[in-house]
Every structure is written in structure tokens, then in C-alpha cells.
Design a binder for these strands. Structure first.
Lengths: 229, 229
DNA sequence: TACAACACGTGAGTC
DNA sequence: TGACTCACGTGTTGT
């Protein structure tokens, strides 16, 4: 535990020790400048420790109570969640593309089920995948380029024709891909929507990323796809 | 940034200042006890700051670079993930119980691929959508300006802190306002989302438009409002 | 004895 | 100007 040197923290300062050297000026400087600063710093440290304590509370599998270890465990935990999320997303793409093509029973299942369950399914896809408004005016992709810029940076640039909610849906597509976006820009001008995104990734992910983007846009456009329900 | 007082950290100790009071014992105590402890403490602080820096790197939606704020954001982020996970799991359980009761064909499918698919499904329930929920993380509007540029043109520029789906929701807000947009641009960089929109309108609509934008954003943030459904 | 982790007061920098 | 945050060196405590 790292609270071994904790203090009662009630009294403002140990003036019996620190105040002897300047007994000539009994008021202002020592009290205001020193003790105010000291108590303020105390509160700052206290707050920081409380935050650290709270962080430890929300992270499972804590091994050591060490300050640095607490932060390290939190980092590992978050990265674990991120990695699982990425894995799941690719699995979902596989499953859903496979389902819509190869599994007619799935369609039958959907039709068999009453309205209640359909609405719930809709709710889930809307809530969690941001694909709620996909039926109107599909995205017309005019150009899509993915280029490796070095330094683990991919540049994605694309052009669409401007229709209703094109900007919204483009943002949704890129949010859903969960990329490590360095900076993103989207501009609408003269009937076109231009989007430029810098992404942290390796060169070998280039082609895969391009396919993922095209797939995501296609899934957004296709009203029969489970993604767009 | 909290690296204001950073140091070169190369030389062990500033002995020209601290060593004068005990020049009688030239070796052991001062060197071993003091400088060893000092350099050790330095390394400890350095490691702790590196960990904190790494923690900031894996947490999105970082607002302030403050040490305490970094930890706080990490806590909020993890809690957000936990809450979403809980919601997803209950939804999935409802769906699966409904399926298993009413659709025997689906059960057969499930039993065909017993462990593998179930584990995948469980992962899906855990991680399917950790992010996509657009209702959390309200838009934090940092700046909003509406200026008349002449020629029946209003310039709207605003800054938000970048959180989950901030770009999506900003686009939605402006789509919902049904403005005569000449050109629109939205950029995400370094934890901020900047949006610039040129609108065809008269000068007297300036203040009204500003209020309408603020209202729309507030309505989006308010979970009870019809806007957020 | 030495090591590791901590809280403390302090000076410096930033807003 | 003060309110904040930070890094630093130091003293203390538990292993």
C-alpha cells in the first residue's frame, strides 16, 4: 500500500519547526505565501491519490498496489478491451457478410419472429452501430484512395456526391471502423463531399483497410444487409 | 502540458551546491546515501510520468493534459465501457432467450457449432459495440461564433472537445436545422473538433441562428429530449 | 544494511 | 497579481 506515510492532515503547518527562521515578520509572508501554498499542494496530492485509488477500483485483476503498477494495469486493461473490440468487429463483418449471402435460414428466422423482436434488433443496431439512418439516398462513392505516407501513417481520401446525410453517414462509417485516427477532415462543396483522414497503421494494412471502408459503405447502402437494419 | 520543469536528467547530482556542508567525509554518506536515493527517486518519477503518458495515449476524449484529469478521464472511460457492456449483455440475453424459445432452427445452428460460436457470441456481447452508443458523451461546446460576412452569407465556426461520435452528432445537428449550406467543413485534430459552415442567410438571422444551434446541441445532449431518440 | 515506495515542503513556471 | 501544476531533493517507513 502506498499510503504508509499518510498524515492526519488537520493542522495547516508544523510552524514549530519551519517558523523559527523568520520570527521577525510575524504575519503576511510566512502565513500567506508558505502555508497557503503548502496546504494547496497537500490538497493537490490528496486529490491525485484519490483519483489513483478510484482508478484502481474500476480496473479488475489488480496485482500490486504500487502507484506505477496501478496505472500499468489500467493501461493493459484498456488495451485489452480495444484489441477485443477490433477482433470482434472483423468477426462481425465476416459473420454478417456470410449470413446475408449463405444463410437463407437467417432471413426465415427474421420473418418468423414477431415485430417485437425485430424492433429490438433494430434498437441494438441503431444504438451500438450508428447505422440508424441508412435507408435514404445511399452514398455514391466517386473515388477512394488509401496511401501509405511512412511513419506508420495511412492517408485515406475519398469523394462522394453530396446527398442527404452524406456527411453524417461518412462520419458514421469511419467511427464504426474504430481506426486510430490522427486527424480527420470532411468538406462539402459544390455538390461533392471530400473526406481526408490520417490514420496510424502499417503499410500492410493498406489494402485491407480499403476493403473494409468499401465494405462498410456498401453495407450502409444495402438496405437488405443486417448492418443497415 | 505538465512537463514544464523537465530536466536533462543526465548528471547524477548538483554537488556544487549540495555537497559543501559535509566536505569532511568525501565519499560514502553523501554519494551513496544521497545521490543514490536521488537518482532512484528520479527514475521512479520518470517511470510514473511515462506510465501516465501511456495511459493518456490509450484513452480517447482527453480534454486536459492535467495529471489528475488524465486519471479521471481514464476512470470515466473505463466506467463507460463497463456500463455499455452491461447494457449489451442484458439486450443479448433477451434476444437469445426469445430465440431459443420460439425458433428451434436457431438452436440447432447453435448446437452445431457449440463452443466456438458461443464464445464468439459472448465476446460479441462483451465488446460488440463498446463505442457506438451515440447517446453518451454529450457534445462539449467550447466556442461558437456566428458572423455576417456580407452578400447574404453567415459564417458559423465552433469548437468542441473530441469525444465519441462528436463529428457524427455535429453533422446531424446541422442537417436537422435545414439551413441553406453553401459549404461546410469539419476537422478533428488534437482532441478538438472544429466545424466551419458558410450559410446563405441575412444578417438579422445571426443571433437567432446562434440560439438555434445552441438549442439543437443542448437538445442532443439532453437524453429526455425527442431529438436524441 | 540497503532498497523500494511514499509524502512532504519548496521553488519555478504557466495562465 | 494569485491560483495551479509540476519536478525536485529530502526524510521516513516497511521489507
Amino acid at each position: 500500500m502506498f499510503l504508509q506515510n499518510e498524515e492526519l492532515d488537520s493542522w495547516p503547518l508544523d510552524e514549530a519547526f519551519s517558523g523559527y527562521y523568520d520570527s521577525s515578520s510575524p504575519d503576511g509572508a510566512a502565513s500567506s505565501a508558505a502555508s497557503k501554498n503548502i496546504v494547496s499542494e497537500r490538497n493537490r496530492r490528496k486529490k491525485l491519490n484519490e483519483r489513483l485509488f478510484a482508478l484502481r477500483a474500476v480496473v479488475p485483476n489488480i496485482t500490486k498496489m504500487d502507484k506505477a503498477s496501478i496505472i500499468k494495469d489500467a493501461i493493459d486493461y484498456i488495451q485489452e478491451l480495444h484489441e477485443q473490440e477490433r477482433r470482434i468487429q472483423s468477426e462481425i463483418y465476416e459473420l454478417e457478410s456470410g449470413k446475408s449471402k449463405k444463410n437463407p435460414g437467417f432471413d426465415a428466422l427474421e420473418q418468423e419472429l414477431p415485430v417485437l423482436l425485430r424492433s429490438k434488433k433494430k434498437k441494438i443496431t441503431e444504438q451500438f452501430c450508428n447505422f440508424g439512418v441508412s435507408k435514404n439516398s445511399p452514398i455514391e462513392l466517386l473515388e477512394l484512395r488509401v496511401a501509405y505516407m511512412g511513419e506508420r501513417t495511412l492517408l485515406v481520401s475519398l469523394t462522394c456526391s453530396k446527398r442527404t446525410d452524406t456527411m453524417v453517414k461518412l462520419c458514421e462509417v469511419f467511427e464504426s471502423l474504430r481506426l486510430k485516427i490522427i486527424t480527420a477532415n470532411i468538406t462539402s462543396v459544390s455538390g461533392r463531399v471530400l473526406k481526408t483522414v490520417f490514420i496510424e497503421a502499417d503499410e500492410e494494412e493498406k489494402d485491407d483497410l480499403k476493403i473494409r471502408i468499401e465494405t462498410a459503405i456498401a453495407a450502409l447502402n444495402d438496405p437488405l444487409s443486417p448492418m443497415s437494419m
